Amino acid sequence: MSFKLGIIGGTGMDDPDLLAGREEKFVETPFGKPSDALIHGTIGDVPCVLLARHGRKHTVNPTNVNYRANMWALRDAGCTHVLVTTACGSLQEEINPGEIVLLDQFIDRTNQRPLSCYDGSSPAAKGVFHIPMAEPFCKIMRKIVGETAAELNLTCHASGTAVTIEGPRFSTRAESNVFRSWGAQVVNMTTVPEAPIANELGLCYAAIALPTDYDCWKVNEAPVDVPACLAAFRKLTDGVKKLLIAVIPKLAAYDWTERMQALKTAAETSIVPGSDV
């Protein structure tokens, strides 16, 4: 099968200079416009499409990101896989700011977002749809990314649960401690509904979470704020760019036939029979 990677860059990780042979395309989808132009190009001769989740000038807050349009646009552009970065706060002592967490689970604490393409809002996505979500993130992609991070001497946690809050505010200390008590590793604002929609559309999806702070649970450190978050994220970008450049050819070389068929079957069997008339 042909491989094409969609890359969704979070804050500071939407650098178009990652790509060679860049070409910008503004598109429309049945769900409206994506966050910004799709930037087509290659990384190590692998075809890729880069999309700035919040817009290249960070003009879209987490609630207002058009997750459905973003994923639909990447699929229509021919992407088979999506690899994203997401800034987050660490909820556990052993996960230090500046390290990497490869998400394998999420807890949804959002409350204002369309959570599915299959909600009756567009004739392009008909039917009542119940996508399985036991494993929201591709374990094969996670494994390849983790092995590559180790080769680059990047500290990488092979798994982690993200609590996705609505935002745009950060957590209270009470909330942060509740999330810790649940055993979650990080807190962010964008994994939901991005991950489940990717699964709905049959896209192989993985997320590189980048802790910039300890949220606000750690009373002997200053609570997270925007200047501290951005400053910490800037320190992470070089290492993560190196990781992307190194891992993308490995992802492209893998035989994805079986995995993609499983995703297709899951999507096809998630529509309630007869509901898509």
Rank of each mutant, 00 (worst) to 15 (best):
E151C: 03
V46A: 12
I100E: 14
G120M: 03
H81K: 12
K139Q: 11
V27I: 13
K126P: 01
K126F: 00
T80P: 06
N61W: 02
I100A: 08
M133T: 06
E99H: 00
I95M: 04
I165A: 04
G160F: 01
P136R: 09
N96W: 01
V46D: 15
N70H: 06
R68Q: 06
K57P: 05
P114H: 01
A52S: 12
L154P: 03
I107W: 03
T59R: 10
H54A: 09
T29R: 00
L74H: 03
L103W: 04
I95T: 10
N61A: 13
A149E: 14
T42K: 09
A162M: 09
P132Q: 13
S35A: 09
V145E: 15
I43K: 03
T155I: 07
D76Y: 00
K126G: 08
V49S: 14
P132D: 15
I100C: 07
H81M: 06
I131V: 11
A124F: 03
I140A: 08
H81G: 08
K139M: 06
L51D: 13
A162V: 11
S35I: 03
F129P: 14
H130A: 09
A77E: 11
P123N: 05
L74W: 01
Q105T: 10
L91R: 08
I140F: 00
N111V: 07
G146D: 15
V84A: 14
N111H: 06
L91F: 00
G55L: 07
T59C: 11
V82R: 08
Q92L: 03
K139A: 06
K139H: 05
V82T: 07
N111C: 10
T80N: 10
K126A: 11
G55V: 13
T161S: 14
S90G: 10
H130I: 08
H40N: 13
S121C: 01
Q112L: 10
L103V: 08
T59M: 13
E93Q: 13
F137K: 12
T161Y: 07
A158D: 15
E99K: 02
V27T: 15
C138H: 12
C138M: 10
F137M: 13
A73L: 02
C79G: 11
G146N: 15
R109M: 06
H40L: 12
A73W: 01
A37Q: 00
A52Q: 01
I39V: 15
V145I: 13
M133G: 04
G160I: 05
D104K: 02
I100D: 13
S90L: 04
H40D: 14
R68D: 08
N61R: 12
G120A: 07
I95C: 05
P132A: 11
C117I: 04
E151Y: 01
